[in-house]
Design a protein around this nucleic acid. Structure first.
Length: 611
RNA sequence: GACCUCUUAGCUCAGCUGGUUAGAGCAUCUCACUUUUAAUGAGAGGGUCCUGGGUUCGAGUCCCAGCCGGGUCACCA
């Protein structure tokens, strides 16, 4: 086809409809072209229909909208902007994000992985010969916002001073069939008509990432955080490892696990709630430092700081203690902040957080004393329970000393610590995997890092005395018998490993999702997870006339069942024959259908075939 | 799991005390336009007002139930 305006009239329209059907009903025979299928295809939005027409028209012009061949670029947008000189020959690829068509010349924005760049398309530059199809038809009519193209051309600066590429060659790389949200940014950088609905953004993160550059930046920061940690740990010679996600005993933390079943072994398996006990086994095995970015799973509530699956960086280093780990942690966080922000300071919800070391160290006893007036030192369980009641914390009989102290801290103290603070020396009852404090056996060598009132890291001088560890597990078992459903399971193999001997070791778990939240000024964990957990979306599958006919519904009736909303066999589930008959005969009357009314027997046959 | 709240065009949103054919901007389509940039000018099309009941002469609007999302709480070392 040569030149001139595209015919979007009847022939192209037919072509596009048959194309839609072949895609939508590829699993069915092509003869499934019936009234209701036609209607279903027509239910697409106008904009989608037009894009499919353009898709078919591109093919009619001999242009494959989804070519297989590699397309090699010379530049990406950010680097090109940095190295920009007039007169460079460049090749770029990306998504068309906007077009400003002015007759025989146009401007367009192309977006690649680094950002956007302006293109200038001039009819006679793009099409120096007689045939102006590529500009008049392909670019102006058949391409849309969202399509991927590759271009080659020459750089120049426009009258208004904008870096641009004069396009000499244009290659269609991929046609987009759904319109992107129409987000616009004005000259003050203000965003108009933002794509902001959280449900749509999380369910269709791919769209979110395309139209919201800040979202992309958040995830780039997340990746940067992990990259800095790897670099830092690898340079120490510590080993990145993988340990089981499917565990027979969900150990290392106290939380409700997800349960699954292994068929061959015929046993229940749990998705890990922590990987701690496995990494310690590796220290027993002789590695000096091991770390893992562990995806953990906890079958608990979801809110803006909890997702059922989340990522914890666990690090264990032999011959170290928790003081060393505090220094290591504050230096690491400072380095991470430098890498992400170019400095140690980060803004979080209007508050400036400073990651520069050293961080304040406050013992748990002092923290509780300061914020509640209660001195936990030497208190019995009964005294602690009374103290809790006194400051307005509800208690019950299942709560032991550890849990009572934990309530005092998390209810009354934790939120006071906004700047990074190490809360240290936790009571022994709430730390079953931690070595007792070198100076006082009522406490343990444990710290948590609190930032903006939330726990970001948890670390110990690891308990390596096997007999003490066994006793601590047994204490947990007693708690569990009292009804504390968070108490830990006993892992006999882990105890055996300790009996072979584990060097003194310090370990830490850093909540990566929360750390990224702190560094990227996000108050919801969903903003730092590409695909946060959501209730599954219900998709409308479209009508299944063959399925209805298999139940005995005559061909004359199937389109009308579909029209009345009974569009698949499943839609008939649990209906009463009388009710369905009445409804469909009513539909027949209302639409003046020229087919015999349904009998009760007929409808009963369909339903009994279904149920 | 409990309570509160929201859902209107592809996107962002108006829609009063229930009242004619549900509106706007952007996006889309048609036409014009060879350095624009939230391009511009003229015209056009586009709606399951989340779903299902109810009240009413009449429901986007009021009532009841429910879905999805959001929030608060519970749960959560």
């Amino acid at each position: 086809m040569s030149g001139q305006v595209p015919e979007r009239a009847v022939p192209v329209l037919h072509c596009s409809i048959s194309l839609q059907l072949s895609i939508v009903y590829s699993a069915q025979s092509y003869s499934a072209y019936t009234t209701s299928n036609y209607l279903y295809a027509m239910q697409r939005t106008e904009q989608e229909r037009i894009r499919r027409e353009s898709l078919a028209a591109l093919r009619a012009h001999g242009i494959e909208p989804y070519p297989a061949a590699e397309f090699t670029v010379t530049h990406r947008s950010k680097r090109l902007a940095a190295e920009f000189k007039d007169g460079m020959a460049v090749t770029l690829a990306g998504r068309i994000m906007s077009r400003r068509i002015m007759g025989k010349a146009s401007f367009a924005e192309i977006q690649d992985s680094e950002g956007t760049f302006q293109l200038y398309l001039n009819r006679d530059e793009l099409c120096p010969d007689e045939d102006k199809t590529m500009y008049n038809t392909v670019f102006k009519k058949l391409l849309d916002r969202g399509d991927f193209i590759g271009i080659s051309g020459e750089t120049f600066t426009t009258q208004t001073g904008e870096q641009s590429v004069m396009v000499k060659e244009l290659t269609v790389l991929s046609k987009s069939l759904k319109p992107l949200p129409a987000v616009k940014v004005d000259e003050d950088g203000k965003v108009h008509d933002a794509f902001a609905d959280p449900e749509l953004r999380y369910r269709m993160r791919y769209v979110d990432l395309v139209v919201n550059p800040d979202v992309k930046a958040t995830f780039e920061a997340r990746s940067k955080v992990m990259q800095i940690i790897r670099q830092s740990f690898d340079s120490e010679g510590w080993l990145e490892v993988d340990t089981p996600v499917l565990q027979a005993i969900p150990g290392g933390a106290a939380a409700r696990p997800f349960v699954t079943h292994h068929n061959a072994l015929d046993i229940p398996l749990y998705l890990r709630i922590a990987n701690e006990l496995y990494l310690k086994r590796l220290i027993v095995g002789g590695f000096e430092g091991v770390y893992e970015f562990s995806r953990n799973f906890r079958n608990e509530g979801m809110d803006r700081t909890h997702n059922p699956e989340f990522t914890v960086l666990e690090l264990y280093v032999a011959y170290k203690d928790y003081h060393w780990m505090m220094q290591t942690t504050e230096n690491l966080l400072s380095d991470i902040s430098e890498a992400v922000h170019g400095g140690t300071k980060a803004n979080l919800n209007g508050t400036e957080i400073d990651f520069a070391p050293p961080y304040l160290r406050v013992t748990m006893r002092d923290a509780i004393l300061e914020h509640t007036g209660v001195d936990i030192d030497g208190k019995s369980e009964a005294e602690l329970r009374a103290a809790c009641e006194q400051v307005g914390i509800e208690t019950d009989d299942s709560m032991g000393k550890g849990k009572l102290i934990d309530e005092l801290f998390s209810e009354k103290c934790e939120h006071h610590y906004v700047q990074p603070t190490f809360i240290i020396d936790y009571p022994v009852e709430m730390s079953p995997l931690t070595k007792v404090h070198r100076d006082n056996p009522a406490y343990t060598e444990r710290f948590e890092l609190i930032i903006n009132g939330a726990e970001v890291a948890n670390a110990y001088s690891e308990l390596n005395d096997p007999d003490d560890q066994r006793k601590r597990f047994e204490d947990q078992l007693k708690l569990s018998e009292r009804g504390d459903d968070e108490a830990m399971f006993i892992d006999q193999d882990f105890l055996r490993a300790l009996e072979y001997g584990m060097p003194p070791t310090s370990g830490i778990g850093i909540g990566i999702d929360r750390l990224v939240m702190m560094l990227t000024n996000q108050i919801s964990i969903q903003e730092v997870l590409f695909f946060p957990q959501m209730r599954p979306e219900v998709f409308h599958q479209g009508p299944d006339e063959k399925g209805l006919q298999a139940l005995g519904v005559p061909e004359a009736w199937t389109p009308h069942l579909v029209g009345a909303g009974f569009d698949r066999p499943e839609a008939l589930k649990g209906l009463s024959p009388g009710g369905l008959r009445e409804k469909m005969n009513g539909y027949r009357k209302k639409n003046k259908l020229d087919i015999p009314a349904l009998t009760l027997e007929e409808v009963e046959t369909w339903l009994s075939a279904r149920n």
